[in-house]
Amino acid sequence: MIEFSLWDIFSNLLLAARWTVALSLVAFIGGGLIGLTLLVLRLTGKPVLVRSINTYTQIFQGTPLLMQLFLLYFGIGLLGIDTSAWVSASIALTLYTSAYLAEIWRGCVESIPRGQWEASKSLAMSFGQLLTHVILPQALKIAVPPTVGFLVQVVKGTALASVVGFVELTKAGGMIANVTFAPLLVYSCVALVYFALCFPISLYARFLERKLHVARR
């Protein structure tokens, strides 16, 4: 039997944490792009688009991420495409992130005074100009703190990818716990690594929020 030192456990967890970070980044960037597209489509105000995007966000915010992961994992396979856990987990987390970000950003855009829209329209700006020159730059400033805060949710969400067999921090922790027979120690280390990933982001989000409030006061 091989003996595992604390450093063995920790270094293996850190190696697995790279996948947690990679999955978080993929989900966050992909989700951001889709979320932005959804936001713009929603802002066009076409009833069909608004209603379908509302349904989309309601579905992703009203069902467990775990079930979304399972659905995509088995659903993509059903289409005859051979998927890996990595692909289906990235897609599920990307869609999940996009629904939340679209909703967060919608709130930010709606906090821009109505008069700004009217003023831009009265200057004969097109919809694209109105968004890129007037609305989005202002909304961006308010949107940064909650978006950074949501990144913490994404990192924590990646832990669920372990249930479809994607070897990231949680899955690696489970495997190491099984071979070392030291689940208490291993899961404490796993929690510590997640904390080390998330806490700085939380603090940064809080700092940004405070800065924004000072600036607006």
């Binding site: 924590k156 669920l160 922790g173 030291a182 208490l184 291993v186 899961y187 929690a191 997640y194 939380s202």
Partner: peptide, 17 residues
């Protein structure tokens, strides 16, 4: 700042140790 699944595993798999 930690995932729910880890909290759950800690309680269920970790604490018996």
């Amino acid at each position: 700042n930690t995932p729910f699944i880890i909290q759950l595993f800690f309680l269920f798999f970790g604490l018996p140790a």
